[in-house]
Design a binder for these strands. Sequence first.
DNA 1: AGCACGCCGACT
DNA 2: GTCGGCGTGCTC
Length: 730
Amino acid sequence: MIEELVHVLQVAMPIPLPQLFDYLPPEGVAISQALIGCRVVAPFGRRQLVGVVAGVGVASPDLRMKRVEAILDATAVFTREQWESLGWASRYYHYPLGEVLAAAMPGALRRGKNLPESRRWRWELTPLGRSRLGSFRPGTRTHLVAHSLAEGDSSAASRDLLSTTSSRPTLRALERKGLISRTLFAEPSAVSSIVGARSYDLNEAQSSAIRQISASLGRFSVTLLDGITGSGKTEVYLGAIEACLARGKQALVLVPEIGLTPQALRRYGERLPVAVHAVHSGLGDTERARAWAAMASGERCVLIGTRSAVFAPLDHAGLIVVDEEHDASYKQQEGFRYHARDFALVRAKALGVAAVLGSATPSLETIRQALKGRYTTMRLPSRAGSAQPPTVHVVDIRKKALHDGLSSAMLETIGECLRQGNQAMVFRNRRGYAPVVMCHDCGWSARCERCDSPMTQHGTAGLLCHHCAARKRVPKACPACGGLALLPLGAGTERLASGLAAVFPDARVVRVDKDTTQSRGALDQHLAALGDEPGIVVGTQLLAKGHDLPLLTLVAIASIDEGLFSADFRASERLAQMLVQVSGRAGRSIRPGQVWLQTHHPDHPLLQTLLGGGYNEFAKQELAVRDEAGFPPFAHLALLRAEATEHSALFDFLGAAQQAALASQGVELSPPLSAPMPLRDGKHRGQMLLTARQRPRLQAALEDLVPVLRAMPTGRKVRWSMDVDPIDLY
DNA sequence: AGCACGCCGACT
DNA sequence: GTCGGCGTGCTC
């Protein structure tokens, strides 16, 4: 008996299941290869989902088989290269294709909508509009828009104004009234004329970096732009982007989450003669979709965005820049755990275009590639303009009294800085008032039961767990002994700020951390509040990058001692990067800068190396350590993480995972271990590390292991994830 | 991941 | 007597 076969669409659904689902095509639609990459709406269980056709084939008819409800696209929503690169990512990160594709699409596409119009319009006042110019009320957006059109100027400011989303309704309204009209925007044909039309005072290192990158356009190459803070990396990017645009190509610029400030954006917008589309997490869906559409259309433009911008169509791109390539925010830390820098390089290679990795503190992975000659290194060794690198002082605080976290020497230095009319930055990687509240009588301290870790005091009376949402009040008396001597121990940013405000009542003290900086733009507002008066900004990591504060001459690092002894193999690297980045904030203009660092461990090798030889010397030594220990970049890692309500379920699962992985050749397994935080938000957490000197060995092991894990009965009671190339081991 | 169905506590 | 807790099972 020959079974009759039917043609089916194999659809990747946005769910964490690795398989494709077979569907019949809509009534009357012929199945063809051309449908691959098109979105469909299909019934799935009890709901309707938007999936993507990943293949076509034949299957024996199945009672369960359903019919696709609608095909949403006439042509694939992904370019061929996107499709292949995303397929690679799905395999490499061992994450289901449907989820990968969904993560790569702008929200509008994911939800089944079409891309917004990508054409741009040139707006003009009609004669009627011109005659009514006087009648618009000053101060309104209508007034602003109309007058901007009247002046007919194409300045960056008015281009900005007319391209912002918020102006669109105004333009529409004016058009309806017949006061303005539009024509399709025609681009100036020759962009080459603008290149080099203005001089930007580049120094020799910058010019030669731009020349190097420009010469490498048009083929795959990676340039490491190793430039100290303040050396003018952005000018190099801009120069290279201009050269790329002059060849008629688009450019993609990836920036860390916190790097996409209005300030930075304005700089790109003002300098570049084309539309600069920005995408970041705080942005609406339509705007993301518009940027995607612009890239797909081939219109000459620049896309600047955070992590997920790496998924944009790039067929017309000639250059990919990854700014601050060492930054951890490029790694997605949940779900589809891709690394945007690494994926950017995969795409650059597939597309045959130039990539630039920029950093003052490159990751050890990148430095190693550069040392092996795979990347070309261009250095920017000196600060742009007349700015000098800061001088560094280490303050030994052993046995010294601290006043709300700061030593007398530190307070004096800050006072001196203020007296000279300058600003100081006080850095502390802990928010809140005090990290621990302890009973002086019996040693009891406030802990979070759900996380088994100390709770941080916020304000005078509140306790907050930084690992879960738990909150409670500081008890009046010690719950263990009834004593009244409950002491806040240590100092977070809040305590530093209030202490400083008390010592320097005339200075403005602003605090920048997650507690004070909830909304986008709040960071800029805080820093603007400092103005050009003497003042102090206290804050966490948020302060480490961006934001030129010309009056800032002193960076005071309150403590980094926790970081010196962390268990994570990457802790040293991150601490060194942070110290260098924070130090780079000082003295960026004509006033010379100083960095003061308080520590209980002035002789710690990491500090000594950094002070003696700078980041490059540190990197050299740390690479030797990694090689010796068999850690990246000399080995490749995958981390199996799991959490469960029951401790036994967790280790049953990890034990079974270990058994399943034992047979893998060329892969070392750590035994199942408790996570560095064994209890978090009421869940027990554990992990198992897979290490391989050869990447293909690790990949082969994961290819076997991950499907086994998915099928494992002990996996039912745990939540687990496989993190390929993890950047945190917790 | 949703979103069912499926058996045991405090409420109109 | 019901509303609802989240265990486990499935999705073409």
